[in-house]
Write a protein that binds this DNA or RNA. Sequence first.
RNA 1: GGCCCCAUCGUCUAGUGGUCAGGACAUCGGCUUUUCAAGCCGACGGCACGGGUUCGACUCCCGUUGGGGCUACCA
Length: 479
Amino acid sequence: MSIRVRFAPSPTGMPHVGVIRTAIFDWLLARHHNGKFVLRIEDTDRSRYVEGAVDNIIGALKWLGMDIDEGPSAGGDYGPYYQSERLPLYYRYVKYLIDEGRAYWCNCTPERLDKIRKEQQAKKMPVGYDNKCWNLGLNGEPGDGVHVLRFAIPPGMTTTFHDELRGDITVDNDELDDFVLLKRDGFPTYHFASCIDDHHMAISHVFRGEEWLSSAPKHKLLYDALGIEPPKFVHVPVILGPDRKKLSKRHGAANVLEYKQMGYLPEAIFNFLALIGWNPGTEDEILSKEQLAELFTVERINTSAGIFDIDKLNWMNGEYIRAMPLESLVERLRPAMSEWGWIDDGFEPWGKEYVAGVCALMQERLKTLVEMREKAFFFFEEFESYDPKGAKKAFKGDDIIDRLSAAREKLEKTEWTVVGIEAAIRETAEKFGVGAGKIIHPIRLAVSGISAGPGLFEMLHILGRKKVIARIDKAIESL
RNA sequence: GGCCCCAUCGUCUAGUGGUCAGGACAUCGGCUUUUCAAGCCGACGGCACGGGUUCGACUCCCGUUGGGGCUACCA
């Protein structure tokens, strides 16, 4: 049997981290088995449809490097891949289900449903539809505006479904109510559409959030009524925020595309997300998509919810930044640097060599791409003030101006190489009979405005003699 | 309220009826060092609780507690 998995989001907003993690599992299983990764858009709720949501979803998958084998933009033999375009397929099953006594039309109004629900709640009774229209033999048509189609749950028995991770789960049918298959507007509910589509798209494994666990028995019953074999179900654990609540904007960002904005690399996000709720069984955790796919098995997925630990993501992102060839880092940083006005569409006015030199110095100091802005601004911008804390420590002593001036003189004449610069500064320190730090720290502050950064000699070398001298002069003036 | 799922360091997790319960992130300390990082070394820290079953339970069973989910003409 060939492995076919589908990622089936509804276009109701931004691609949520938890949703994307499910897609990652889908993709990993497909690639592991050389199967197909299918994208299906579940747009059956017209009221919640968000313009551009599909593009964002596809954009997120693309950013993360998950190639789609079949889907709206990729095509395929099992289309259409929008559920809204598959209505005739769903309608084909309506008559059959009604004839078999497994579904019936219902004309109960939302108001009535609301009323009985409130009464049930008030009496602390289990809530659910009261089957009023069952056996009324109502005649309806899909989308006639007054009827919904309901599934008739066989009463007085139990239903067992199989979850690949948790095993068999049995529930009492009386806990299930006659759920809606077709809504008043003629669109199917998730339950109806996904069962039919998964079958018709020959899906072998369904990964979905564990919030679907409760409705899994309904789906099992539906499959039985339809006379079709269900796919394998894997209910994956949810991803929570640090407060153990569902991950949301309050926790920073719940939308993967925002992580792109925050300077995270897609490789790191993919790697990190793959490791929440699943483990590769290896000691090493830094793994490429290909390695993850190689290692991926359903059995190693966990059953308990995981917390999104931004600290670990930061570490992992830093690992990826450091492991990257300089050339790649420059390219990744380029759009941002351009946005900050540091460079134009090329590398002007600084030139590629200068920009690459800065990137090389910053590479092991970045956890995210955007940190570049606050840590390397002085390579590209003039600044007006010195870090107060740093100034208090570095710009002190009666002879501070003398030390700065002396270093300036040396730097003006020395050979402009890293070694030459280092020699100039160490000689200055010697001349004053002080530790090198007494010269290094003031110069660092004078030249960068901050007290933390790359090694001073390399830094000065990149900045260039002219700018270094000018900034030292400016600092002396301010003292 | 009813039903369902889950439970190993702060976090992600490995693990077995008998282990010194292992790793990673974070934290703390040290080394290195001109700062910040990086790197290396080390420390801290865990089987939620109570009953069983068993020669023996972190592991199996039951309960409790805690967390999560469902209970829509949303997915």
